[in-house]
Amino acid sequence: MELLKEKIREVGVVVSDEVIKLDAILNHAVDPVLTTEMGREFARRYREQRVTKVLTIESSGIPIAFAAAQELGVPMVFARRKKTLNTDTETYCERVPSFTKGFVTDIMVGKEFLSENDRVVLIDDFIANGDAARGLIRIIRRSGAELLGLGIAVEKSFQAGGRTIRESGVRVESLVRISSLAGGRIEFE
């Protein structure tokens, strides 16, 4: 997706050979025009699959997943990272490490929001090692829902996440793939 590549070149900050900050468009601020276009593109790629739900994880995946769900005309559900006083007691829960946050967290989806009748697309902002995505895939499978595939805004293809999930037989659609951040330079596939 050329628009996303342009924005990454414009605002991306390479922190290390493994980390890029995209706070200005994905992780702290949201570019509404770009986000809407990303949602349209994911909807275009999955429209024929008869999606019934879009699933993501809080928090940076929410705007893109919302845009895709709106375009598809289906509900969006997000996995919570923290229990609150009013968190459902009946949840699917998985423990997952976060590459960028550097710690392990529980992710939860209320059982009332996923069922065996659902056809789910998982949308997220980044994939690096794929741990969060694998946790959500386990939740989807435990619910009995059908996983149609993943939609990832930015795949760091030099890390194993996207590749290993594809190798497990899951469809992964990435809008852009970054092949290297070495030497502070952003290289796309």
Rank of each mutant, 00 (worst) to 15 (best):
V30I: 15
A24H: 07
I62V: 15
E37L: 08
G184R: 01
P63A: 14
I8L: 09
S16G: 13
G162I: 00
G151C: 08
A182G: 09
E94A: 09
A133L: 02
L26H: 13
E58V: 05
D125N: 14
Y92V: 05
L3G: 00
L175I: 13
G102P: 09
L34A: 01
K53D: 07
F158Q: 07
S174F: 12
S174P: 00
V170D: 10
L85I: 14
R44I: 13
I139S: 02
D124E: 14
Q159E: 01
L148G: 10
R45I: 12
S168G: 10
D125A: 15
K21R: 14
D106H: 07
S174Q: 06
Y92T: 03
V54P: 11
E146L: 08
I25F: 07
T56V: 15
R141D: 09
I20F: 08
Y92P: 03
V51W: 06
L150E: 04
D131H: 03
L26T: 02
P75C: 10
V30Q: 10
R141L: 15
R47N: 11
T164C: 05
I127P: 10
S60F: 02
I20T: 12
V15K: 11
R44H: 02
Q49W: 09
E173A: 14
R185L: 14
M1A: 11
D118C: 05
D106N: 04
R142E: 15
M76E: 00
T100W: 08
V96H: 00
R141W: 15
T52N: 04
D23P: 03
E37T: 14
I127D: 00
L122W: 13
Y46Q: 11
D17K: 12
G102R: 09
G151E: 01
V15W: 12
R47L: 06
L4A: 02
R138N: 12
F158T: 05
K21Q: 07
V170N: 02
K111P: 06
S16Y: 05
V96N: 03
I140L: 12
G110C: 03
V11P: 04
S98D: 03
D17E: 07
E41Y: 14
V54Q: 03
L3T: 05
D23A: 07
A128Y: 01
R81H: 02
G144R: 07
L26N: 01
S16F: 08
E146T: 10
R138F: 09
T35G: 05
V13F: 10
M38V: 15
T84H: 12
R185T: 10
G161Q: 00
A182Q: 09
D88Y: 14
E173D: 11
I178Q: 05
F99P: 06
E173V: 13
R138V: 00
F78D: 06
Y92M: 04
M1D: 10
Q49K: 15
V74S: 01
S59P: 11
V15F: 05
G144Y: 12
E48F: 02
I8Q: 01
E94S: 10
P32Y: 10
F78C: 13
V54A: 04
E10P: 11
R45C: 02
A153P: 02
F42I: 13
G161N: 04
S115N: 07
T87S: 11
T36E: 08
L3F: 05
G73T: 04
K156P: 00
I64Y: 05
E173S: 06
